[in-house]
Design a protein around this nucleic acid. Sequence first.
DNA 1: CTGAAAGCGCTTACAG
DNA 2: CTGAAAGCGCTTACAG
Lengths: 349, 349
Amino acid sequence: MITLKDIGDELGLSPATVSRALNGFPEVSLKTRERVQEVAERMGYRANRSAQRLVTGRSGMVGMIVKTSPDLRADQTFMEVLVGMSAALAARDTDLVLAVDQGHDPIEAYRRMLSRDMLDGFILNAPVMDDPRVNFLKAEGIPFVVHGRDRLDADYPFYTIDNYAVAAESVQLLAALGHKRIAYLNGAEPYSHVARRRAGYLGAMAAAGLPVIDGAHTNDAPSEAAGYRQALSLLAGQRGTPPTAIICSSTLLAEGVMRAVRDRGLLVPGDLSVMAHDDDLPLSRAISFSPALTVTRAPLRDACVPLANALVDLIGGGNPLSLQSLNRAELIVRDSTGPAPANGTDPWP
Amino acid sequence: MITLKDIGDELGLSPATVSRALNGFPEVSLKTRERVQEVAERMGYRANRSAQRLVTGRSGMVGMIVKTSPDLRADQTFMEVLVGMSAALAARDTDLVLAVDQGHDPIEAYRRMLSRDMLDGFILNAPVMDDPRVNFLKAEGIPFVVHGRDRLDADYPFYTIDNYAVAAESVQLLAALGHKRIAYLNGAEPYSHVARRRAGYLGAMAAAGLPVIDGAHTNDAPSEAAGYRQALSLLAGQRGTPPTAIICSSTLLAEGVMRAVRDRGLLVPGDLSVMAHDDDLPLSRAISFSPALTVTRAPLRDACVPLANALVDLIGGGNPLSLQSLNRAELIVRDSTGPAPANGTDPWP
DNA sequence: CTGAAAGCGCTTACAG
DNA sequence: CTGAAAGCGCTTACAG
């Protein structure tokens, strides 16, 4: 293994100067820096992280806790985030350590992990409203970042999309097409993004003077089957007059909705407009729907690099408030949304 | 943070003795060891891994490469292995570092990872026959263990089940029930476990004097949809006289087979016996099938601890051959298998 | 059985 | 702008 000393010997410099040159200290002369970089490159130098960590007093490791859930979609989203996160952290010389949450107490897993590993910080995902993990880590003074946002006045670094706008813009698009009966199939209630989308739906419906469709959310995890079941129930009029448009909080739900529509012999968008929020997961491609799905789109993987950087910066002493990121999802109009069916041609029995 | 010196000061011992006591060196007196352990416990001592790694010259990190695949089952099995592996390695003070394989050249990802991270070894999974990654790592002299076995004369540490026996015993069970037309729905061809199961199927069928059913494997990744499609094709007689029994290489395939059977108005096991190999993944529970599924069962997660230990032992200088583990799957007979339908009462049109 | 010493590779005040 | 020195916390020959 090549060390700073090896490079220094090659150039007649001390390890200290080589270290400073490689780490971009301003006091090193340009020509020295260039010579050092050239030799380091040529000799294939890679800093010994253990040594760096020992001297800086940081472990170079951050933790993330996997909630074991029998829900496939969770696995999909988790895989996506995991792989992206792990690459983004590697780019900042940081390792990602995983642990499993066995259920029950949500902060127990964090306690255990802290007492076992030396961790510089945590990444949280899928926060619920006023998340107890957030409260715990704040109280302990452990650095963390959140994928999502558990309260509107968050004072920690986060990366999230504007979930209120996601729902509200969907409603506005459909209302502009003349739809009056718009249903929203949401995810499981405790999650804060679900609550925000619900708020966005309610807000936009109220603003448009439209009636909220009861049961416009579900406590199931989003899945094709849940979408199918919910859509059948809506289309059968079990929750009042059937909607002319359904917004889904995920493309998985939309798949089920599409199947229900087909099974009832209806057409999209002629009889029913369907749209969804699209996390752009590899498995459920909105563009390959037939008809192609209108969506609000925000690739989940986009969160990884910003989150990794925010956490490493926070650990390095960055200001939490300047590491917050609230993003807008794209609105992509495709073929699954259209004008509301004319009054009086109600296709439902 | 508590250090060896802190403990030593407390007891009037040198850090060296404390280190030896904690690490189980035989020359430390029993009473000293006990006092040290008691104080270390009380003070909440945790060794600084960076320091340990620096002095031992090991990074304490092992690598694993995720093949990105649009296939859900891969995600499921991967999640299962990942989470288990990560816990099992943690118990040996080792971190798991992930990287993503972008496709094309299978060893490129390993090259990149080796040049970027300082890794003590690798865990490989899902080997293909004569796997190029195995050849590469052997040539480079990098320690690795394999979940599975890419060749019968493997000289590296591995953990695998006897996949030949998995298939052969399934055939034997069904043959003993009088079945003569037994089909095998296998996974994608390149994988070595698939090839071994195919060999087991062929061997047992030949031994029983039964005709192999053509197309008894599929190149698709195992999925409910693939099982459905394959079963329909078999039951429709598109591959000769329909089978009276179908063995599936995964419970996912079996789900599809069951659906196909229902759609054709047939009964399990009256008209068709169905069995599968069961990795015991959380999502596809053989016991909840209706009727409950007869399986060969070998929980995927059982591999994690042995594999983690084998790798850490190998890195520590263990003998590869003594770290190999070939295991037998359980045979669990439930309600989806029964006597072959009597001749002449062929239920198929 | 225990201790003093050296050293792993790096960073960073402190001098110059 | 550069170097010599100290030190991060641990392990392990080497002495006793």
